[in-house]
Design a protein around this nucleic acid. Structure first.
Lengths: 228, 228
DNA sequence: TTTCGGTTGCTTACGGTGTAAGCTTACGCC
DNA sequence: GGCGTAAGCTTACACCGTAAGCAACCGAAA
């Protein structure tokens, strides 16, 4: 057998793992299964990957890396730059729903994640944000991507399994839950809703930079409340 | 042995599961281990819980239930009401970091989640939000809680394992990552940063309601970009 | 050409997991 | 007092990640 021809490599393993997760979901991704997908025994994979967690980390980083667009110039307009990244991240994750749980849970910092963070941070710094605000800004952008996308990515599953949700639609729970019984029937376009959130966040960032800080009644006071 | 005295119940199993996760983390929570914690064989648990996933769902719902405060009156001020919920959720999750991955990943709708959603939705409706905007608002609040808290909850672990992060602190990567090399040294108080985000979101919601829509340059245009 | 070192993949094995099926025990009730 | 029934136990299965050691093949040196 021509061993050299289709030799295993770290990258081939990684790509196969991504493909398997894409086609059959994350829980189908076992080392044995992945091996058989490559026509190889499970333990052979360990020549190219230290362990499964490292493989998952590599998968995450490969995905996050796609969030930034190498071609694009740094973008004169920081709003467009950051907005584009947020939308690209959203699209990527919705296309690979299984990745959401990985990305939100595994904190390892690889090249992809670093370059993504760098891209956002420098955009903010160049736009006149203080280092501290840029720091917060990165977290705000990051949190928004993760939180919002996670919620949307898991929704299809929720709908499929929705026991109570069905009852809500039927109006059977109007007495107990009058509010959501109304709003649940609202039309719901993921991309549109996300765009709303992206604008809200970017606008909020601009406002922070410009120092229009204390919002009207200062809901920050509620923070003190929460400690009681 | 007085069987009746310390009989197993669904609730006792649930509480033990929460306690075990609290003390030893989520991955220590196996059915065998949980059984032994209750002085019982693993399979005995299945009398009170259909399977492990259902147990995890129950754990999630029990946590989310704590996000709303039954005592509190509906709160005249919707900002304070929603802000308080967001801060309570944040505090709860930071106290139980293992819960983050569960809450963000498991979509099942239990009583806790429904009541939480209802509480936020009615607050928005009563504050004059249209049903559609209230619907979006719930998702925005929900996504913010999850995303932002997830990010903060996993940070300690990241710091512990930070291989690259250390290099960043040392300034070894300044050439490759000038931006984050600067901002990573910024002081970082979780609660303060979260309060910033909460205010940003609530303020953004108010702005949406009042129709001050198109932010300056309309970063929404970037959304179109992201489709290309 | 022959040998040899090193890489690559395979085999076997261990201790863990969730849980299906069936057995035993002991309680509450007639 | 006997019995139905529910609670808990035992055994077993198919899977998981991976440690340890072995076999086969490669390219390079002799």
């Amino acid at each position: 057998m021509a061993r050299t021809r289709d030799a295993l490599t770290h990258d081939r393993v990684l790509q196969a793992a991504l493909a398997l997760a894409d086609s059959e979901g994350l829980e189908a991704l076992s080392m044995r299964r992945l091996g058989s997908e490559l026509g190889v025994e499970a333990m052979s994979l360990y020549r190219h990957v230290p362990n499964k967690k490292a493989l998952l980390d590599a998968m995450v980083d490969s995905i996050v890396h796609d969030w930034i667009d190498d071609e694009a110039t740094p973008a004169a307009d920081w709003r467009r730059h950051i907005g584009a990244i947020m939308h690209r991240a959203h699209a990527t994750l919705l296309a690979r729903p299984w990745a959401v749980e990985l990305v939100t849970v595994r904190p390892r910092v690889g090249d992809g994640r670093l370059r993504y963070a760098e891209s956002i941070t420098t955009a903010l710094l160049e736009a006149g944000f203080t280092p501290q605000l840029a720091h917060h800004g990165l977290h705000i952008v990051d949190g928004t991507i993760m939180g919002f996308t996670a919620q949307q990515a898991r929704r299809p599953t929720a709908a499929a399994l929705g026991d109570r949700v069905q009852a809500l639609y039927n109006g059977d729970l109007t007495a107990d839950y009058p509010g959501i019984s109304v709003t649940i029937r609202e039309h719901h376009d993921h991309d549109e809703e996300y765009a709303l959130m992206v604008d809200l966040v970017i606008d909020g960032l601009a406002r922070l930079r410009d120092g229009n800080e204390p919002p009207r009644t200062g809901s920050g006071a509620s923070y003190v409340l929460s400690l009681a």
